[in-house]
Design a protein around this nucleic acid. Sequence first.
DNA 1: TTATATTGGTTACTTTAAGTAATGGAGTTT
DNA 2: AAACTCCATTACTTAAAGTAACCAATATAA
Lengths: 108, 108
Amino acid sequence: MNQPAICPKFEKAVSIISQRWTALVIYELLSGPKRFSEIQSAIGISGKVLSDRLKELEQMDIIDRKVIPATPVMIEYSLTEKGRAMEPILKSIEEWSQQWISVDSTQS
Amino acid sequence: MNQPAICPKFEKAVSIISQRWTALVIYELLSGPKRFSEIQSAIGISGKVLSDRLKELEQMDIIDRKVIPATPVMIEYSLTEKGRAMEPILKSIEEWSQQWISVDSTQS
DNA sequence: TTATATTGGTTACTTTAAGTAATGGAGTTT
DNA sequence: AAACTCCATTACTTAAAGTAACCAATATAA
């Protein structure tokens, strides 16, 4: 009666992309490096949570943070190889959404 | 300077799989219909949240709920066509996890 | 010199979601 | 009628996300 436990690697991966905003942040960066405020306005995330997510993703080596000494200073975020490797995940979500999601304003 | 907004269908799909537990519940059902308590023990979710998730997924027509008049009554949950169509999403997460996730207990 | 603007980020506070644990209802067996 | 099993809910606690005001650094305008 004890079914095989779920693979810890898979479980961890799921917990990453299941964290709110993470998938959208990575999706945004798939089209190239972006700055803090660009990501923020593109996906409508609060500065506080974006700051948290970027820090977490940087620690997981999914994104890279680069300080550009301009005026005022600009910070450029980009995907690492590990991050770019998530592209198939985002693409499969995109495909499924086009086939199966109806954007009906009466739905929740 | 106003970049193209994110596709609403995609955004909605992301919000579905980004909701905690949803991906794991669907993953469990990929291997066939399961009962409430089976899902619960397989992924370690609380009864309350599983109950919520199953209701939401049923409303979105991603899973199907079937009452089996046994003793005591059993409820069988299975994926609909829409739900099975999410398999590529879960598989791509699985592949990425195998290549890029290390299960190091010192990591968070 | 003082004032103001910009960028990335933080802090304090409120609201929402999830975890925990006890409880309930329907049907069956004892 | 007690007690058990399965699915589910309710009340309460804890954790995560939303909101909005604020800060440091740098630069330019008044």
